[in-house]
Design a binder for these strands. Structure first.
Lengths: 205, 205
DNA sequence: CAATCGTGTTAACGACCACTAACAAGGGGC
DNA sequence: GCCCCTTGTTAGTGGTCGTTAACACGATTG
């Protein structure tokens, strides 16, 4: 045990990051001031600088963090491997949906505020994103060998847009239960991939 | 002819709006200053106030404008009516894709910066968006009667996310020719709708 | 018990920024 | 030929915001 700090259930840092993500998603990175972020966790303004080097550092940690978690989750599901590539694709989709539904603000910030990062952090995030995309592309091509690589890549990007649109659409509550939303999104994603591979299927008249 | 002003090919206002859209898409509403917008059209800073009441007014005109054009285009295609609802859906999708590919920055700003509008403008834009969504929902339900209304609405939102993801994905050039991108996006959208209506189709194992 | 570290406070500073004021130049209408 | 409307300019102003400085105070440690 030596020197385990055991810093409460959630550390101050995590608390700050969570509120910062919410505020950044609501009003944009440049739209929220450090005083607001501080107020959201009960401290005021410059107290944040005891935990982060600056506002930029908060955004960087948020974006690098979510990108890493997405990639790690994806790798896990690929490594776990099902009986088939199709099962892996199902798992990837389910995992991404869980992410999008659990961490709505983060997903929103993730694809809106990337360009507000310092060069180095932006490169890192983009690299993680690229690896995550490539993970999906390989699986998609395995399931649908008829699919061109560039087609698969475009389809993956588009499906991300589809899945990431959920945060976006429910400012008001009382939407259908989560499980049915999950199921619907999964169907939509699978339908899109199937159509990407097989022109005649969806577009047939 | 009486008193036609004939204000050059493109008016100053339009020129400003175009550059403002590009900059807002690149760096966010709060991330670009009026001096930059001015510089982009060859005048400097406060000269913009001869054409717009303020920065907010530019954003408002951009968002109201695109929302109206989307809705009008949609209504036209519905009224035009094909031989079938399916053809109308095809037309809606094609129209939206053209929009997304022609006015990339505008589409980006459209779903990122809505919350930076004054209350009144935001309400107007949201109302236009809602009407546009309902237009799609009706057509989707006609093509796929098995589809619940709330399912159809969620599917439409998700497909918008899918189609609007294109601006997003090509910072670097040299992507496949436009016509093939168009065709792929259309297939993806149709595949998603088909899967929304028919659970067993895409998700079958 | 004293020293230190972690964590918070308020005050102030410097930069940036949207917007206004005051002024200038050109061009068409009477 | 004078007027004035349009469309620019530059200088200035008030406010906001990120960040730093200086200080406070409780808990842990030796």
């Amino acid at each position: 045990m030596s020197s385990t700090k055991a810093p409460a259930a959630v550390s101050r840092r995590e608390q700050i990051l969570k509120e910062a993500a919410r505020l950044f998603a609501e009003r944009g990175f440049h739209g929220v001031g450090v005083d607001e972020i501080g107020a959201a966790v009960g401290i005021s303004g410059p107290g944040l600088y005891r935990h982060f080097a600056g506002k930029d550092a908060m955004l960087a940690e948020l974006l690098v963090g979510i990108s890493e978690r997405l990639l790690d989750g994806g790798r896990l599901r690929v490594a776990d491997g099902g009986e088939s590539a199709e099962q892996v694709l199902h798992a990837l989709i389910e995992g991404h949906i869980d992410f999008a539904l659990d961490d709505r603000p983060l997903i929103t910030v993730h694809d809106r505020e990337l360009d507000r990062l310092r060069e180095a952090d932006r490169k890192r995030v983009r690299q993680l994103q690229r690896q995550y995309v490539e993970l999906w592309v390989e699986v998609v091509r395995e399931v649908y060998p008829a699919c061109t690589e560039s087609e698969a890549r475009a389809a993956v990007h588009a499906v991300f847009g589809l899945l990431n649109s959920t945060p976006h659409l429910s400012p008001r509550a009382s939407l259908p239960p989560r499980s049915s939303t999950e199921a619907l999104l999964k169907r939509l994603a699978l339908g899109a991939f199937a159509a990407a591979a097989d022109p005649d299927r969806a577009v047939a008249r």
